[in-house]
């Protein structure tokens, strides 16, 4: 491909201070996403998938960072060196957004969801048109009766609806890149599929690049063009999805694939 990458990460290191020890949560990762591409990041819990996404989006929680280094460039701009104001501008419009595993915890319990979406809209225009845009977004993420949903509080919605609200918030700034951190892990199996279908549709319709973080290789196989396999803070393998599934280069990747395709023993199948 001759196109320049949307996101280009080289030698990213995130070392965290935990008590007396320094944990190398991310230890020299190279990572890239092309415009409009869907990339999967897989690996077991604690392999550093989420930390990497948080570091790239500069949304690290309050932890003690011992070292944060590397080259992070988004459309040629250095994200790590970016001042707060420019970073906010990037988040507010045509930059990157993120959705999270636990939509209930990531929505403010004391505010109606409509207001929380409105707050994320890229530019403040008149109230009426903002409301219309909120309703359009809710409709776009597949929520019926947007006017009604907008008036609800997060605890009044189901898990799948909450995640759709999160997606609407992420889409409000019209991002070029969406990080989805285990977007369906907290949901029922049937709802998982629906939410993934919605994400995929939005990815295609908006030509929006997407990075899906998951431990579920089945999700990757369905949606992603390319996959990064992470383990212990390093990318141990990256390949196009088809190639990875057919010819995994690493034992670890092979085991992950075997685990995800293994069926229940015949006597346990319904």
């Amino acid at each position: 491909m001759s196109l320049s990458p949307l996101l280009d990460v080289r030698d990213l290191k995130v070392h965290l201070r935990l008590g007396p020890n320094v944990v190398k949560a991310i230890d020299g990762v190279d990572f890239r996403i092309m415009p409009g591409e869907c990339v999967g990041i897989v690996g077991e819990s604690g392999s550093g998938k989420s930390t990497m996404a948080r570091a790239i989006t500069r949304l690290m929680p309050n932890v003690n960072i011992a070292e944060l280094s590397g080259e992070l460039s988004f459309e040629g701009q250095d994200i790590l060196a970016m001042p707060d104001g420019a970073l906010r501008a990037l988040r507010r419009g045509r930059g990157f957004s993120m959705i999270f595993q636990d939509p209930l915890g990531y929505l403010n319990p004391t505010q109606r969801v409509g207001r929380q979406i409105e707050e994320a809209l890229s530019c403040d225009s008149s109230r009426g048109s903002n409301r219309n845009r909120v309703h359009t977004l809710l409709d776009e993420v597949g929520l019926p009766d947007p006017a009604n949903v907008a008036r609800r509080y997060p605890h009044e919605l189901s898990g799948g609806m909450r995640q759709r609200v999160m997606i609407a918030i992420a889409l409000a700034s019209d991002p070029q890149l969406l990080f989805a951190d285990e977007p369906t892990t907290a949901l029922d199996a049937t709802v998982q599929l629906q939410v993934l279908q919605t994400l995929y549709r939005l990815h295609k319709e908006r030509n929006m690049a997407m990075a899906i973080i998951t431990h579920d290789l089945g999700v990757v196989a369905e949606l992603c063009d390319r996959v990064y396999v992470m383990r212990a803070g390093k990318v141990i393998e990256s390949a196009e999805t088809v190639r990875l599934f057919e010819h995994p280069q690493q034992d670890y990747s092979r085991r992950l694939i075997e685990l995800s395709t293994r069926r229940l023993p015949r006597e346990l199948q319904a």
Partner: peptide
């Protein structure tokens, strides 16, 4: 401040003062 919705607010690109006031 350690709650998830503060991360969401930051991801929205809200300023610090705005996050404190409204969340």
């Amino acid at each position: 401040l350690s709650q998830g919705y503060i991360i969401t607010a930051r991801a929205k690109g809200l300023s610090r003062g705005r996050i404190i006031r409204s969340h």
